[in-house]
Nucleic acid binder design. Structure first.
Lengths: 335, 335
DNA sequence: AGTCACTTTTGAAACGATTCACGATCCCCT
DNA sequence: AGGGGATCGTGAATCGTTTCAAAAGTGACT
């Protein structure tokens, strides 16, 4: 059992100085070919593994980003986290995650943790807009990017998907295919306000079209099913002929319920549009028309912003990106 | 803009030594009440945040665990990761994640990364059993726990769910409810061998019962749908009257396909059992009977083992836990 | 005043890497 | 032979903590 092998042990064994070993690791072009090979051989022989803690300490904080998502149980966030990890990797950075599970306490705890870890920056999907806490963070110089929120006023960067446009596209599509009585599934309303407004904008463009809000406490499949049951039970003439779910889980839940209901056919009697384009959307019972959120772009941009801020703290201008969503037409809204 | 504030700045401002400040942080009981309060006030005033990198460096590796999951896109792994995070938290540890996405390269890269980060131990869901790489890790003293694999021979700990029992329970239940021609959905076979064997064991107990293997390349909803279509198309008398999916996604996919098929009713004509009890299982079109894997127990035990190994490296005996799964009966197998 | 036991506080030495101002070599050219 | 420029290699200082032996302070008792 050999003791811990550090850069010093390697140096001693290879008969060079620690500085040279360090150069082999970080600036190989400064080292002659012979020494390079010698040192690398010695490293292999001794099974040297660079201690990243020491490295980061010396370099003043590291190549790590912290990310807080709302809820890993929601595929959208899981997929986004995954995309961010990939994006960070292309810049040679690592991401550590925390799931706030919609609890204030956990959000704060992760922020503390990330600060202690001296992360290079944070990517946060905030529970309720930018908190005072977060503003203080940026003021102290911590690069911060908020997801999915229009913090156009706060002094932080944000990357959001244009919910207004998304809502508009979804409902416009329903109207274009001849539907007129649209049900909007989702809540709490302030969390999905943009999508609602966009939906309303589309409705206003067509005479005789109506939009009804069906409020849900959460946004799970179960909530969707409950609403689906409700809608299926409505008398034929007041029953909507289209449903717009504020997220795919709601839409899928409603779809499940309707497909089983007697005398209701999807999409013939009721068309359905979801939101997020999670992986399951395409493989639903009736493949779900939905609004695709460009997750990769979102992730790429968020990572770009946070690293830019980290690199050029001085000249960094806060940006507020609003990415356009895209309509994906599938069977659930066929005529 | 004040410079970086470290333990030294706090000490200077509060007119005490750095040792005292450190004690306030780590062993408050050694510090007199007055000094404690003074130092804490100073910390607040200066906005001190402990540098965990330095802390961990000094303490020789940290309070961090590394976890590699097969695929975050699969809810089972996402939920397990989440459970491990929670379990580690109760021991004051943090978990950093990596998703191998079923690629050898990524698995190795994460192992390297974790080693450089000097994690306290690793939790790995391996692609293909314990690799030589992993054995070498343990030999060098890295605490390691493998998931869901019977590495009874390798010199590492493992925590697995008893797939044999799970398969047995699932098929026994189908037989108990009168079904006789059972289809086993899943593949590649070596990855689900235990479940298959358990299923076979149940079949052998009943005269006239048969088990047919329907191989799938992957284990997604889409694969399940494809198999469902296939099965729905079989002539009535050779068509199975029950399906056992090697995971919930397969079972759900098959269910979706069958529910839409003319003249096939679930569970009347074909009963379905899944495996994993992911969150969506309960809220499927027809709530899915499934084998519940005790995720929390799995996570708790895995974390316990890895930390035990880390704490008592010397006297640590490798354990190979096999946790019993549980049958959850829902509508998809009603008589 | 001196001793003893006990509680607090001190400050220098790690932990393992990176940095950087210098010194050492080597090669070519006049 | 000597000067000039690259090219390589050196090693002490440093990052911000924790640790720990020893010093200092505090009371009580002889």
């Amino acid at each position: 059992m050999t003791g811990p092998v550090g850069i010093r042990e390697v140096a001693a064994r290879a008969q060079v100085s620690v500085g040279t070993v360090s150069n082999v690791l970080n600036k190989p072009e400064l080292v002659s070919a012979r020494t390079l090979e010698l040192v690398q051989a010695t490293m292999d022989e001794l099974g040297f593994v660079r201690n990243d803690l020491a490295r980061q300490l010396r370099m003043g904080g590291g190549t790590t980003l912290g990310m807080i998502v709302l809820n890993v149980a929601n595929p959208f966030w899981a997929e986004l986290a995954h995309a961010c990890e990939a994006a960070a990797e292309t810049h040679g950075h690592t991401v550590i995650f925390g799931s706030s599970d919609q609890l204030d306490g956990r959000e704060d705890r992760y922020i503390d943790l990330f600060e202690e870890q001296r992360v290079r920056g944070m990517l946060i999907a905030p529970l309720d807009g930018a908190t005072e806490r977060m503003n203080r963070l940026t003021r102290r110089g911590m690069p911060l990017v908020l997801f999915d929120i229009h913090a156009a006023d706060g002094d932080v960067c944000s990357v959001a998907l244009d919910g207004d446009v998304g809502g508009y596209l979804a409902v416009k599509h329903l109207l274009d295919t001849g539907r007129r009585r649209v049900a909007f599934l989702g809540g709490p309303l302030h969390q999905v306000e943009d999508r609602w407004k966009g939906a309303l904008r589309a409705i206003d463009e067509v005479d005789g079209a109506t939009l009804t809000h069906f409020d849900t406490a959460d946004q799970t499949i179960a909530d969707g099913r409950a609403m689906g049951d409700l809608i299926a039970g409505l008398p034929g003439d007041s029953r909507p002929d289209a449903i717009f779910g504020a997220n795919d889980l709601l839409a899928l839940g409603a779809m499940q319920s309707l497909v089983l209901a007697d005398g209701v056919h999807v999409p013939r009697d009721i068309a359905i549009v979801g939101y997020d384009d999670i992986d399951y959307a395409a493989s639903a019972i009736v493949p779900l028309t939905t609004i695709h959120q460009p997750r990769e772009a979102l992730a790429t941009e968020a990572v770009r912003l946070v690293l830019d801020h980290a690199a050029n703290g001085g000249v960094h201008e806060h940006e507020h990106l609003l990415l356009p969503p895209r309509l994906i037409v599938r069977a659930s809204t066929a005529r």
